[in-house]
Amino acid sequence: MKKEIIFSMKSPYRDDFRIQAFRFGKGIKTLAIVGAMRGDEIQQQYICSQLIRILKDLEEKGKVAADREILVIPSVNPFSMNVGKRFWALDGTDINRMFPGYDQGETTQRIAASLFKAIEGYEYGIQMASYYMPGDFIPHVRMLQTGYEAVEDAKQFGLPYVCIRQPLPFDTTMLNYNWQIWNTKAFSVYGGQTNHVEDKTSKLTIEAILRFMKNNGLITSVNINPGYLSDIMNEEELITVKSDSGGILYRIKSPYDNVVENETIARVIHPYEGSVISEIKSPCNGVIFFAHNKPLALQGDPLFKIINS
């Protein structure tokens, strides 16, 4: 394992800002993994820390391919995590909206540029991502349809689903989009939520990434179950269930749960009187893919996304 600092910057009042990278193997640049880009992506960082621990052990035992290189960057934004902010603490900008970055531009553009320079040119790229709405997912691989998306390769994670969607204008500044445009087969892996470290989902995600490495010959002699035969789906096919009122959300169904049409999957409770304002029912038979996980619901909030069976 080679440990290096790929970017550092003085702060007016704090310790230096540093981005650390961990390199395994050598030779062909094969896989780059990026962990927390926002200050609340603790689970995403934890997963990377565990991968670094495992890869270090495997490398010492000679089980990492000698002619190829894996790069892991567990955090791009330790400063925000240390002060409990999701975005860049000074100006509220999101590093994941700054790609491919600009080394003469604003601070977060420079951070994005230095990261992109370090991870450019790898055959595969994995970003441990979080969603812009609060909620729990069935762990899956997500990618934007840029024309370069490597959907078949994504199946090698052995996660239940591979989810693709058309990019929107603001997606063009995200890492996944730019990685693809610059010829890296990029995958965003969505596991657990932010601000938590969950054993079950983090274990599943770590296994999925190790399975991907094993299936691509990057690591050997590792005992991992074969995983799922992934289903490929387009995000547009998911059925969104919205809240028709505001109140306290009492969630009944969770990701992985099977539901039938008209089954109650959540209730919105009057915040003062405790009565049920709204019964949220499934519009179809299917499986819960995404479930809102905050205790309050706004009118119109997407509460569930269901895979219609």
Binding site: G246, P271, Q299, G300
Partner: peptide, 11 residues
């Protein structure tokens, strides 16, 4: 006009 969780509407 959209209901917020607690006794308020966004307008």
């Amino acid at each position: 006009s959209s209901a917020l969780p607690i006794d308020e509407k966004l307008r």
